[in-house]
């Protein structure tokens, strides 16, 4: 059954997550979660490790399904049956792309070229179109020189860029990014952030999970804070980042002993990048 309610702009939300609970055996990863993602918005899911962000991203990508509650994609229920159906399933895969946190799982093809070609081939694009799009995407991501290389020869930064290229080649309207800057060297991180900043105004809906507070303001229009499988705050990034008590409560900010240049030794809250 489809939903017909709109968000006041006349457009259906891209995602509506209604009272979703998800369990990994005994562990409840998401608890009665409610969330709406509107078209063209850049959304950040902010939370410490194990707060349930990545699980939600997988649900939004139709890779797993809630134990309780419902998820709607553009008004249609996101269920295993719908994903398996040829019409909706292929359309959904064309419109939604997920970049995994660990690029090793996403780079399963023998060469970079084959990797980028994988998605379009599964969606049965014509060969000529596939070659054209691959060439454009490799150029856009500045990885044309890696075309014939095997993924095991690449650096982590290069792997992340190839993983992103393998999704961008499909030109998805909705991009789901799981910790895109995790474990990257400064240059690769800067490339990734530039990409996310430039995506503003592209019309794409981008949902990014992160615990890197430094980048949130640059890459988000809306921000949801996760803690132990629940959303504990939803607001604009500036508002979230100014709420020190909230950040401390959700383990995104902490105080620790340190030395200043003056030699003074004391503690106060700090922003930190928490590597996974």
């Amino acid at each position: 059954m489809s939903r017909t309610n709109s968000n006041g702009t006349g457009q259906l939300p891209v995602y509506e997550v209604c009272d979703v609970t998800y369990r990994y055996r005994e562990v409840t990863a998401l608890k009665h979660l409610n969330l709406t993602v509107n078209p063209g918005r850049r959304v950040v899911l902010l939370g410490a490790n194990g707060s349930g962000k990545s699980t939600l991203l997988r649900i939004l990508n139709g890779l797993c399904f809630p134990d309780e509650g419902n998820v709607y994609f553009c008004g249609r229920p996101l269920t295993a049956e719908n994903i398996e159906s040829d019409g909706f399933g292929l359309e959904f895969r064309r419109r939604v792309g997920l970049v995994f946190q660990n690029p090793e799982v996403q780079l399963f093809s023998p060469t970079v070229f084959d990797e980028v070609a994988f998605g379009p081939l599964q969606l049965r694009w014509p060969d000529g179109e596939i070659r054209r799009k691959i060439s454009e995407t490799l150029e856009m991501m500045e990885i044309t020189h890696l075309k014939d290389r095997s993924p095991h020869h690449l650096s982590m930064g290069e792997k992340k860029r190839v993983a992103l290229a393998s999704v961008l080649v499909l030109d998805p309207e909705i991009l789901l990014l799981d910790e895109p800057t995790a474990a990257l060297d400064p240059k690769s991180e800067s490339h990734m952030i530039d990409f996310l900043v430039q995506s503003k105004g592209s019309g794409k809906t981008i949902v990014t999970t992160t615990h890197d507070l430094d980048i949130v303001e640059d890459i988000a229009d809306d921000c949801f804070v996760f803690h132990e499988g629940r959303i504990v705050a939803a607001a604009a990034p500036t508002e979230i980042l100014s709420d020190v008590a909230l950040l401390k409560q959700t383990n995104l900010l902490h105080a620790h002993l340190h030395v200043h240049k003056s030699g003074a030794l004391h503690t106060h809250p700090h922003l930190h990048k928490h590597e996974s």
């Binding site: 398996e84 799982v105 070229f113 081939l121 599964q122 969606l123 499909l170």
Partner: peptide
């Protein structure tokens, strides 16, 4: 673990049990 993750990554990009490759 790796094999299940890889399978999900393949599904995410449209894999539905049938593989297609490009003849280069």
């Amino acid at each position: 673990d790796l094999s299940s993750e890889v399978y999900l990554a393949m599904q995410s990009r449209g894999f539905r049990g049938e593989v297609h490759i490009l003849d280069e």
